[in-house]
Design a protein around this nucleic acid. Structure first.
Lengths: 347, 347
DNA sequence: CTGTTAGCGCCTTCAT
DNA sequence: ATGAAGGCGCTAACAG
């Protein structure tokens, strides 16, 4: 590893260290001739500036931490990509942290920022340690995807309620009226929003909500399976199912099949997320797409503005979602009545 | 954000800065009384050591870069987890980089290490820029999963040949003799190794290899689909298929179904990786499991040893794989002859 | 435009 | 066991 410093370069080029620094940082702040001399010296000595010294001196690491709830979830990969692209372009680096669903680990990462291991924190975990430092000591934070009610932190999210509503409206448009819902973990803002959208969709169509059609899940595949099992055991009739996550939707489809129901012939299914599983599963899943890349880059943009000293702290950005029609939904079977013209179909 | 420094703490506690530093770094190097005074001052002033200053002074960032070939691939998530866990426990941080299948970006990350943005680089990309710095200027590097022939760099991998052999032996054990192979991109060491294992398995069973049964893919799902299409169009008979990646295996299954072949009734399929798709696909995929977490943590362990100044540079570690029996393989149909007792079955 | 001069915050000899 | 002092490598005033 190299050891030449700005000082050796200065000596070699016959200029001062300040000039070297300038020639490198703001080339047009020095005369072309000197610049050339410096550059030649840099090349000759194979000089590489010591980033640690620079950052220390500038009191900025140009690094942000992206902390996710659980890194096993590939959902976060695209978010990361969005964050990283925007960060990289602006000269920032991204450190990805895994909270492992554990709030104390969030505190740990917060501490890293306070120690100036990083300039800011992009949080995608549904909670903060209760002993949160108060505003003056609170480092720059942007919350994405999740909600942290108390603190008035800048946030990037989707409109969960409206998104769920889209899913349900689609099902209703296909003629379904007995629509079940697999929710996420329930006191959580995200799950509550999606459930509210489900109810709103029914209400708008004048469909009486039936509590027996609603089962609580936890976003994971197994709970989708279990949810359908419960629904079937309850023996409530339903021709469609809206799951608050793709994983649950896939679990649900597996269980439906295992119990002899065909998808979409007997039951239409809509998921949520448009995860990587959605397209490759069989049949491909109709679902609500979250534009993850965009969520990530928006969050990073916000962070950059905050770190640049612009922006009034509390901002909120809402990223659009999109209903992706694929193979798991179709009009209700004619024998159940109200069959609409068989027009809507996935590409 | 806090601004108290070691100096203010020293003044408050009525000791020198050296004592504060010692009290924090090596508590038993100072008298209990002084330690208490220092700790009280730290608490009173809400002192947080400035990591940048510490690292600058110590000339170490305690950060390593994990550079992957393409971060969209969830395969790397578990590797990351393994790396991160081991790193975290040893006081290191992990910066994840995405090479986006682009060698020039590898050079960029190498440069980051040279600039001391990080202490070392864990490489999971199949190549290095040709203008690689020579040993004195070459930063600490550990290669994982992939192979970089020229440089005698420490490496953590699996035995691709032996792993593929296991897959093929399993199929042969079930009575299959017409076994097709979907390879990875072909000049690459990894793909070549797996293909060699396939051939070795056939040879050991006295089966004549048939070039018409081999199709080149690129590890991605679409190439699995295309590969099967080609196989079917060639009209070569086969009762089993070994794909060098799970994604290709799933693509293959989709295409087989689309063309009216049932899996595993008509064709048995074995994948490679045990990716997250393997378990949730339908039926669940029999495959070769790579212990990704372990590969990651081994790589990080190696890195730590190198950074600690131990370890002679060129080391190579080989992590075991495991055949995971699930639902896509079964004995050959009796009408094709040699049907073994129907014993082997997934749990 | 360029050089001189101070540190950034911490750790670490070297004395005491 | 503790204090005093000198940098790590660089940038940012401030003069010239």
């Amino acid at each position: 590893m190299t050891t030449s410093t700005i000082r050796s370069v200065a000596k070699y080029a016959g200029v001062s260290t300040a000039t070297v620094s300038r020639a490198l940082a703001r080339p047009d702040a020095v005369r072309p001739g000197t610049r050339a001399k410096v550059l030649a010296a840099v090349a000759a000595l194979d000089f590489v500036p010591n980033a640690q010294a620079v950052q220390f001196r500038r009191r900025a690491t140009r690094t942000v931490i992206l902390l996710v709830r659980d890194i096993s979830n590939p959902f976060y990969l695209d978010i990361y990509k969005g964050v990283e692209e925007t960060a990289f372009a602006a000269g920032y680096r991204v450190l990805m942290g895994d909270a492992r669903n554990d709030v104390t680990r969030v505190g740990h990462y917060l501490e890293m920022v306070r120690r100036r291991q990083a300039d800011g924190l992009i949080l995608m975990t549904g909670g903060l340690p209760s002993a949160l430092p108060t505003p003056p000591a609170l480092p720059p934070i942007v919350v994405a995807l999740e909600f942290i009610p108390e603190a008035g932190l800048p946030t990037v999210t989707i409109d969960n309620r409206a998104a769920a509503r889209q899913a349900v409206d689609h099902l209703i448009g296909l003629g379904h009226r007995r629509i079940a819902h697999l929710t996420g973990p329930m006191p959580e803002v995200m799950s509550v929003g999606r459930h509210a959208g489900y109810l709103a969709g029914l209400a708008a169509a004048g469909i009486e909500p039936d509590p027996a059609l609603v089962v609580r899940g936890d976003f994971h595949l197994a709970s989708g399976r279990a949810g359908v099992a419960e629904l079937l055991d309850r023996d409530v009739g339903f021709t469609a199912l809206f799951a608050s996550s793709d994983a649950m939707a896939i679990g649900a489809i597996n269980e439906l099949r295992a119990r002899g129901r065909r998808v979409p012939e007997d039951v239409s299914v809509v998921g949520f997320d448009d995860s990587i599983f959605a397209e490759t599963c069989n049949p491909p899943l109709t679902t609500i797409r979250q534009h993850r890349r965009e969520i990530g880059s928006r969050a990073m943009e916000l962070m950059i503005e905050i770190l640049s000293g612009r922006k009034p702290q509390p901002v909120s950005i809402c990223v659009d979602v999109e209903l992706v029609l694929r193979g798991t939904t179709r009009p209700t079977p004619r024998h159940l009545g109200n069959a609409p013209p068989p027009s809507e179909e996935a590409p």
